[in-house]
Write a protein that binds this DNA or RNA. Sequence first.
DNA 1: CGTGTTATTGACTTCATTCAAATTAGGTGG
DNA 2: CCACCTAATTTGAATGAAGTCAATAACACG
Lengths: 228, 228
Amino acid sequence: MQIALTTAGNEIASAAARCAYGQPIRRAPESPALGSTRTFAKGAEIYAEGDRAAFIYKVASGAIRTSKLLSDGRRQIDAFHLPGDIFGIEAGDEHRFSAEAIGEATVIAYRRCSLEILAANDSVVARQVVTAMMRALERAQNHMLLLGRKSAMEKIATFLLDLAGRISENGQVDLPMSRIDIADHLGLTIETVSRSLTQLERQGAIEVPAHRRSIVLRDTAALRRLDD
Amino acid sequence: MQIALTTAGNEIASAAARCAYGQPIRRAPESPALGSTRTFAKGAEIYAEGDRAAFIYKVASGAIRTSKLLSDGRRQIDAFHLPGDIFGIEAGDEHRFSAEAIGEATVIAYRRCSLEILAANDSVVARQVVTAMMRALERAQNHMLLLGRKSAMEKIATFLLDLAGRISENGQVDLPMSRIDIADHLGLTIETVSRSLTQLERQGAIEVPAHRRSIVLRDTAALRRLDD
DNA sequence: CGTGTTATTGACTTCATTCAAATTAGGTGG
DNA sequence: CCACCTAATTTGAATGAAGTCAATAACACG
């Protein structure tokens, strides 16, 4: 029982169908109600803080940032979501972050229903959603330590190692996001991000190719020493 | 079907019994296996980072802090847990924070089993645990914004308003925790916490009685202006 | 009352920010 | 392919918010 539109092995879609209709329903592939793929241009908003949370999302390609704003415009980027990552899960009925595509990105949107009902009705999807939530919680908790107690250099080192663990091929990390995004994720300014990268490069820990959107980790041991 | 030792209306205990034994089992009140109350002295450790997470806890009285350490001793207090709060839920099998009693405190410990099994087997407890996790996630996400983007004064204002919302009687907040704990929660030093409180007092927003362990909110509007 | 702990205050330093300018990258149209 | 333009990034100099170090003050408790 798998719905054509969804990616292979995806349990969320079938569960969402059950959730919405009581029992699994076979749907035409062109149905937009669940598991629909959407493409967003660079900078496009997927949802805003306060929007009704009707869907949860899975990144298919590209990268998404979720962020919160203070009234005067200061921004905190809670997380970057890469292909395979689920985002947009909420406890209440509205989004508590806004989500934007960083570059061009495609996401799969799944109609959401109350997580309590979901969890009660379907153990497979419950596990998936609970797991995604747990991951978000762990990420947030580690990030609190970073934001509250680490220096700029340590923040950058931690960030690079984390990204490398998620998307590096042979020690090279292609940054999907700008310096501003990195700064707003790490609680720094773009200038400090830039200076820290320069300093790490001078120390031989990393190498920043000309186009500035990728970073080669030269000395991960040195970075790890900064990480903790 | 309620187990004698547990507090009234508590679903976690009965679910834990089901979880551990497949079906509900009536246990003698003196059984320590689930819903057991434990008392901790000031500063006593309930569990350490890395400990096997065999229980989840609910605060009965007093206050608990959960925190993470950097290798050189810098500390980030993730949250303060007050009576009624659940803490110690983990995705994996070990604790990712340490938990200590702030003053003398009593907690109720519930034998834990894999959350996936929990969620699959029992919708009532699934809802409770998922709700507690959600709350932890929301707290963490708001706290990231505070740690990453707020000034010292704003941090203190947010902290006081939050605490007031949880334990104030008529605008008076009795702080269970020391300045060091506040500092380590807000990503500040004790000196900065102290100076910020003094400044808020000078501005007439708060009043700090002589014993320094309680705070009267005089002008919540002014605090709210700082909060966001 | 001492004594130890916790909090406040003061003086100075530092790390990161701010403001400003220069440089580089990437896209557009000739 | 190159000149131009805009946006992103880097770099420099000065400032500032919070940290550090040090001393004092206020409690809490025996």
